[in-house]
Design a protein around this nucleic acid. Structure first.
Length: 249
DNA sequence: GTTGAGCGTT
């Protein structure tokens, strides 16, 4: 899992953001890191996700430390075939705070004018860039959900990176590209990435509540009774009730 | 399990 974006933007003081479009919905930040890190120092990778489904929205933000390296990555990775789709890499035009940025870098407001001059309201920034594009729907099949999600913010974030890596890397991709990526990936992760991505599956000892119902449903053994009244069952009672083998987790 | 123009978060 990626250590990027674990607690918000780390340091965007002098970084250059790149917008990566047309990536697959299963591509994670860990998949993009070995590609982009080859052309420079990547300080952050962020993939916006849907509020409700938690799925990737199909694009990512890669922040470089230096502009020339970011430019290099744009020239090299733009149009590259990643996971079967040609990605589009370009400099971000808007910052995390919806502020227009120049060549991927946050526009520098003069320290002098930033002191007392507050003749501009912070809300105008968002309205500025939102105005050009009224609709922000990503996909037509999700427009109907956006209506409810637009005024409903009770959506809770699920896990940041789900088990998207279940896909096999050697599926139908051209081994030529993947080979180079992986080859450099081995060398790249030798510096500090190996410590940041520990085990691929290390779940907390805390039992996942929502998953248990599914496992019980698909369990080969028939569940005898649901015992709707005994919802608040003690751990000991549940053991006698389900007596099902461990679902795996 | 699907989708495909676009600009971002504990």
């Amino acid at each position: 899992m990626s250590h990027f974006g674990r607690s918000g933007p780390p340091d965007i003081k002098d970084t250059y953001s790149l917008l990566v479009l047309n990536i697959t919905f299963r591509t994670t930040a860990d998949d993009l890191f070995p590609l982009f890190d080859k052309y420079g120092k990547v300080v952050d990778i962020f993939i916006p996700r849907d509020r409700k489904t938690g799925d990737s929205r199909g694009f990512a933000f890669v922040r470089y430390k230096y502009a020339d390296e970011a430019q290099r990555a744009v020239e090299r990775l733009d149009g590259r075939n990643v996971d079967g789709r040609d990605i589009m890499v370009q400099f971000a035009k808007y910052g995390p705070n919806a502020e227009p940025i120049q060549k991927g870098r946050i526009v520098e407001t003069s320290p002098k004018t930033r002191g007392r001059s507050r003749s501009r309201s912070p809300g105008r920034y968002r309205n500025d860039y939102r105005g050009r594009s009224h609709r922000r729907s990503r996909s037509r099949s999700r427009d109907r959900y956006d209506r409810y999600d637009r005024d409903r913010y009770r959506e809770r974030y699920r896990s940041r990176e789900r088990d998207y890596r279940r896909r096999s890397r050697s599926r139908s991709l051209s081994p030529d590209h993947r080979g180079r990526y992986d080859d450099d990936y081995r060398r790249s992760r030798s510096r500090s990435f190996e410590s940041a991505s520990p085990p691929r599956r290390s779940l907390s000892p805390r039992s996942p509540s929502p998953r248990r119902s599914e496992s019980a449903d698909e369990s080969p053994v028939k569940r005898r009774e649901r015992l709707p009244l005994s919802r608040s069952v003690s751990p000991r009672g549940r053991h006698l009730d389900s007596r099902s083998p461990s679902p795996g987790n």
